[in-house]
């Protein structure tokens, strides 16, 4: 595929939001990672507390990915144009794939009754975030839903997964590396779509500020909990929290 950035703007948007582009983007690393990770990587020797912490962490990732799956699928109906609908359809499969590989990883760690275990270990702030996100979706509030989903949630996952990869066992690290590649694409869509809307209708900035103010405590609380499970030292956590805020800011939403 030639560099899509060489294309005229409208053709570029058609191209990067298409099924064809998605397929070209994901085909390589999906082929190399059946069930989400390289099958040749051997399981690390985790002690009981490490294993329990990893299970709790992965359960919360599964909650986050379920929220993303439910939100992105619900947004297709009221997405403002065909290319946004088709991009969201590719995101739906990405999120479902993430959920599937996380559940597979949990089963590799010996977890049975996956649905019950995931629910029982869910972080309350993350559940509250999910509830609020789905309210935006149910209200067909395109800007708020896209902001909460493709900017805030994706940035949170991106920052947490990156921190986790540095400390993860080899299999979990390989799986998260694949997921991170998708999150970048999703954040790019949110940035592009909302960036254009902010340029055309600057008054929505105030609304998004209010959404961010409401969701930030839930995100930061989830962050704190997850980073503790992942083994990030307490002294490093504020820095990673700032990293999340900075990644939102880089997307143009310092607000």
């Amino acid at each position: 595929m030639s560099d899509p950035h060489d294309l005229p703007k409208e053709v570029f948007l058609d191209e990067v939001h298409s099924f064809e582009f998605w397929f070209q983007a994901v085909a390589g690393y999906l082929t190399e990672r059946p069930n989400g990770h390289d099958p040749s990587i051997e399981e690390a020797d985790l002690n009981s507390s490490e294993r329990e912490a990893l299970i709790t962490t992965l359960c919360n990732y599964a909650i986050g990915e379920t929220a993303a799956l439910e939100a992105s699928s619900g947004m297709i109906r009221f997405a403002p144009n065909r290319r946004a609908k088709i991009f969201l359809a590719t995101q739906v499969v990405d999120e479902a794939r993430h959920l599937e590989v996380l559940l597979y990883r949990l089963s590799e760690l010996g977890v049975t009754h996956l649905e019950e275990v995931v629910q029982s270990r869910a972080n309350r702030s993350l559940l509250a975030f999910r509830k609020r996100l789905l309210q935006f979706v149910d209200g067909h509030d395109w800007e708020a839903a896209l902001f909460a989903q493709n900017v805030i949630l994706e940035s949170m996952e991106f920052s947490v997964f990156q921190a986790h990869v540095e400390r993860a066992d080899p299999i979990t690290g390989d799986m998260l590396t694949g997921i991170i590649k998708d999150e970048r694409r999703h954040m790019g869509f949110g940035e592009n779509e909302l960036g254009r809307r902010l340029a055309e209708t600057p008054h929505i900035r105030a609304r998004l500020q209010a959404v961010k103010k409401e969701l930030d405590p839930l995100v930061l609380d989830t962050f704190e909990d997850t980073l503790e499970q992942v083994g990030v030292e307490r002294s490093e956590r504020p820095e990673l929290g700032r990293s999340y805020l900075a990644s939102v800011e880089r997307l143009g939403f310092a607000l």
Binding site: E70, S73, I76, I86, A89, T90, V92, V93, A96, L99
Partner: peptide, 13 residues
């Protein structure tokens, strides 16, 4: 949910 996600992408295609 996972199956319907694949169906969603099939239909978008």
């Amino acid at each position: 949910k996972a199956f319907l996600a694949t169906q969603t992408l099939d239909e978008a295609r």
